[in-house]
Each structure stands twice: as C-alpha cells, then as structure tokens.
C-alpha cells in the first residue's frame, strides 16, 4: 500500500518536478501553493504525510502545521525547504513537523524520509542534527528540567553521527545498537525539541541569524 502524500510549495517549477519524482513511489493526493488553500485541501483529503515549505504566502509553513494539527492530529509533516536558517528549521519543528530536509535531497532519500515519517519516526538532516546539538549545549545551566532540557549522552552520540552524514542504519552499526533503538533516540530528541518550553531555544535560533 502506498503512502498518501500532499505537497505544499509556492514554487511552481519545483512542485512539478517534485510531483513527477514522487509519483512512482507514493500516492500524491494533491498540492497547494498558499497557506489557506493548503489547510482546506489537507483537511478535505486527509493525507498521511504532508511535505511543506517554510516560506509560503499567507503565513508560512508554521501556520499550515498549527492549523491542521489542531483538527487532524494524525497528519504528519515533513518540512522541505531551501532555507537552512536555524530560525526557520527550529520554528517548523517546534510547530509540529517530524522532520526537516533540504530541497537538494535525492528523490530516493526523500521517499525514504516520507516512509519513515509515516511510520511515526523522526527525520533529521545532518544540518538539523547540528542545530539541535548546538542549541541544547548553548542553553545556560540553571533551572533545567532534565527530562526536557537536556540530551542524554546516547542521544548526543546518535545526533553527532547523523550530523557527520551517517544514515540511521550506519549509526546503528557504528554504535552497535539496533535500528529501532536509533529511531527511538531520534524521536526522543524530537519530543524534547518540541516540548521544552525554554524560550532560550527560540532565542538561540534567532541569535544565529546575526552570526
């Protein structure tokens, strides 16, 4: 059974290309190029996975995720963007995206990421893994909630490998753990990233713009 996918991107050429690349492997339910149309169509067609761009006319990908998740919590989002600004990446994940990849990703890797997202796992690109390591280590020591504001040593090790360009399978082999364990660690990092309510996370992301 193929996975049903919905595409949200305001760049017509990219959308056409993406659609033709994906159609062999997944069931593309439709596409939208602005926020309001996207929200309406996603709620109407109930895809399993939505690929959503960061910058969109009418409020950005963050708004699409927020509005849809409120009404259809089971829809899963993968952020797909040319932007690799920390601010954009962190905002999409905090809004509820389960992963972030750049548009230069190979089609076969993208299909793999879609499958992983649909199964409830998280998809971290090397860059996102780097951002997360940087953000969590930059948090000032103080009143921290160790459950949400700290990464375990193992989680850091897994992220470091992903940042080095390892696939999940390669991470598992290198650390001598099962693929399932790697996925569990990454999902746990995603949860911390989404639920940690320390405003330092957001501030870290916006500070990165200046550097």
């Amino acid at each position: 059974m193929t996975i049903s996918v919905f595409l949200v991107d305001d760049h017509a050429i990219f959308l056409t290309g993406l659609r033709s690349e994906l159609e062999a492997d997944v069931n593309v339910l439709g596409a939208a190029s602005d926020v309001d149309a996207a929200i309406e169509l996603i709620i109407e067609r109930e895809p399993e996975v939505v690929l959503v761009d960061v910058h969109l006319p009418g409020g950005g990908g963050v708004r699409v995720i927020r509005e849809v998740v409120r009404r259809l919590p089971e829809v899963k989002f993968l952020a797909l963007s040319v932007s690799d600004a920390a601010e954009d990446v962190i905002a999409m994940i905090r809004a509820g995206a389960r992963g972030y990849v750049t548009k230069s990703i190979q089609a076969v890797d993208l299909v793999d990421a879609i499958r992983r997202i649909s199964e409830g796992d998280a998809v971290f690109s090397p860059r996102l893994a780097g951002f997360v390591l940087d953000a969590f280590s930059s948090l000032p020591i103080g009143e921290v909630d160790p459950e949400l504001d700290r990464l375990t040593a193992r989680e850091q090790e897994v992220l470091r490998h992903i940042a080095r360009g390892y696939t999940y399978k390669e991470v598992a082999a290198s650390l001598d753990i099962s693929l399932k364990t790697v996925e569990t660690h990454v999902s746990s990092v995603l949860r911390k990233l989404q639920l940690s309510n320390r405003h330092e996370l957001a501030r870290w992301a916006s500070d990165r713009r200046i550097v």
Binding site: P126, R127, A129, G130, D134, S137, S138, R164, V211
Partner: peptide
Amino acid sequence: IEVVQVRD
C-alpha cells in the same frame, strides 16, 4: 561539500 558546524 556539506558543512555542519556545532559551536565556534
């Protein structure tokens, strides 16, 4: 070349 940088 893809560069990922953590801290500086």
